[in-house]
């Protein structure tokens, strides 16, 4: 296995950044939800209308690069059936672009008693880490893998209010999914930082519980302070403590395939001067992966 690739969560300004530094972007995480208009299951006629120009541009950017899908709309932990029409639309895009894996969030975005599946809760809600939710997530992850024909990963969330009295911790939940062959982990290091800044456990304590073999992608990113809390707003470069966590642990994830920086495109002008140095530092991070892996094998 080669070292992990370095890349971006694709957004409308990504082509500008790629044009400036094509060799620094080896990987693109693609959000299908941002490449179509979803008129809902009760739409008259076709439900999903693709933003055709944006998809053409994505195809150009994806040429010669590794790509994976990163969804938000399936809400796997929701206590409701999987939105099969949505799965079909993701599968179509996955085949078109050639996703090597597909990730979703370990959060509830769609509430079970909503009138229509494309209506969202307005926020990623925390889940109860217990057997009941595990059964729902594991079953849907298996179905998704079957439909897309590629590995599935779930991303740890940024929460202000964890659900109390869990049967297992979030890392234990993710470890079980991995151990039972249901899905892998997308470890968002900035989300760990957000949770710690808002009173949760340290990133070190979290990672110590996580099976490192489960991690196939890590996310970097930045946020800002608001009303006494630290937000996962994707509005800044990766904070130094997140880099420290990344450099301390990347070499320990033997199946890591991508290191991804995510930012919100409305902050592009504010971030512009820092983005290429950010990508360069990500490459330095990726280079730390191989030596320790070789040492581990040598040992």
């Amino acid at each position: 296995m080669t070292r992990p690739t370095v890349g971006l969560l694709y957004n409308p300004v990504s082509p500008l950044l790629i044009a400036q530094a094509p060799d620094l972007v080896e990987y693109l995480g693609v959000m299908p939800d941002r490449l179509w208009y979803d008129f809902g299951p009760n739409a008259q006629g076709r439900r999903f209308h693709r933003t055709l120009g944006a998809i053409d541009e994505l195809r150009r950017c994806a040429e010669g690069r590794l790509t994976a899908g990163h969804g938000i709309g399936l809400s796997l932990p929701s206590a409701m059936p999987l939105d099969e029409a949505f799965v079909d639309a993701v599968a179509e895009l996955a085949a078109d672009i050639g996703f090597s894996w597909f990730s979703e969030h370990l959060s509830v975005f769609i509430t079970p008693k909503g009138a229509v599946p494309n209506a969202q809760a307005g926020l990623g809600l925390p889940i109860a880490y217990d057997d009941e939710v595990y059964g729902i997530v594991a079953g849907k992850a298996a179905r998704l893998r079957q439909a897309l024909g590629c590995p599935i990963a779930l991303e740890n969330g940024a929460f202000f209010t964890p659900v109390p009295d869990p049967d297992m911790t979030e890392p234990q939940f993710l470890n079980r999914l991995h151990a039972e062959g249901r899905c892998e982990t997308l470890l968002d290091l900035h989300n760990l930082y957000v949770n710690w800044r808002n009173g949760g456990e340290t990133p070190e304590a979290y990672i110590a519980q996580l099976d490192p073999a489960a991690v196939i992608e890590i996310h970097l990113g930045g946020g800002d302070d608001f009303a006494g809390f630290y937000m996962d707003s994707h509005s800044s470069l990766t904070p130094e403590p997140v880099w420290e966590t990344a450099f301390a642990h990347v070499a320990g994830f033997p199946n890591l395939r991508a290191i991804t920086y995510e930012f919100q495109e409305t902050y592009y002008e504010d971030l512009a001067d820092g983005l290429i140095p950010e990508l360069e530092r990500m490459h330095e991070l990726a280079e730390t992966w191989a030596p320790r892996r070789r040492l581990a094998h040598a040992g």
Partner: peptide, 20 residues
């Protein structure tokens, strides 16, 4: 019910409401 009561009393709930 106990879990929800715990969440409502958590100081982060005010932030969740704001983000919503």
């Amino acid at each position: 019910a106990g879990r929800l009561e715990g969440i409502v009393r958590h100081p982060g709930m005010a932030c969740s409401c704001m983000v919503y």
